[in-house]
């Protein structure tokens, strides 16, 4: 593990060695299968009502699945809302890039800042200041997803490598 310290930005970064690369790759695969699960109705037409019902039920434990908040293409819709999709996509994009680039150390302050747009969007749409926008929810979700992935990955690597 190579640690690079940038004094100007007070940034500690970790370059992936082979073990870390493997951990990140496994996490990437897990994330990809989770995302593939909720994208399934868009990819293939599930004609088995039993699987259809329980797949929807499975994702309902982590998302409200309100139909107007779920991104849909044609007649098929995703199994999670635009905000959740954004969070998972943000984490997925970062997990791919973390295989090749240096992962910056994320401070708690930055984590709090990243959740602010998401919370503001929730608050402003709930209070009726503006109407719900899938695009805005998706974008604020992506920002939070990217930061939460970076924040969590270093901690998970520490746990798995027993450091």
């Amino acid at each position: 593990m190579q640690i690079v310290l940038s004094k100007n930005f007070k940034l500690i970064s970790v370059k992936p060695d082979s073990k870390i690369f493997l951990i990140r790759f496994i996490i990437l695969l897990l994330l990809a299968s989770w995302i593939a699960g909720f994208l399934l109705p868009l990819i293939i037409s599930i004609e088995n009502p039993f699987i259809n019902y329980f797949l929807k039920r499975f994702y309902s434990t982590v998302c409200h699945q309100e139909s107007f908040k779920c991104i849909s293409i044609g007649h098929a819709g995703m199994l999670v809302c635009a905000r959740c999709t954004g969070i998972y996509f943000g984490a997925f994009i970062t997990s791919i890039s973390s295989l090749f680039i240096v992962v910056p150390f994320i401070s708690k302050k930055l984590l709090m800042i990243s959740i602010l747009p998401l919370m503001m969007d929730v608050f402003l749409t709930t209070s009726g200041v503006y109407t719900y926008s899938q695009f805005l929810s998706f974008v604020t979700g992506i920002i939070f997803g990217m930061v939460i992935y970076l924040f969590t990955i270093l901690e998970l690597e520490k746990f798995i490598l027993n450091k």
Partner: peptide
């Protein structure tokens, strides 16, 4: 996942 995030947050605090 929440446990990993929570540990980082509380240890930093």
């Amino acid at each position: 996942l929440g446990g990993a995030v929570g540990t980082a947050i509380i240890n930093k605090r």
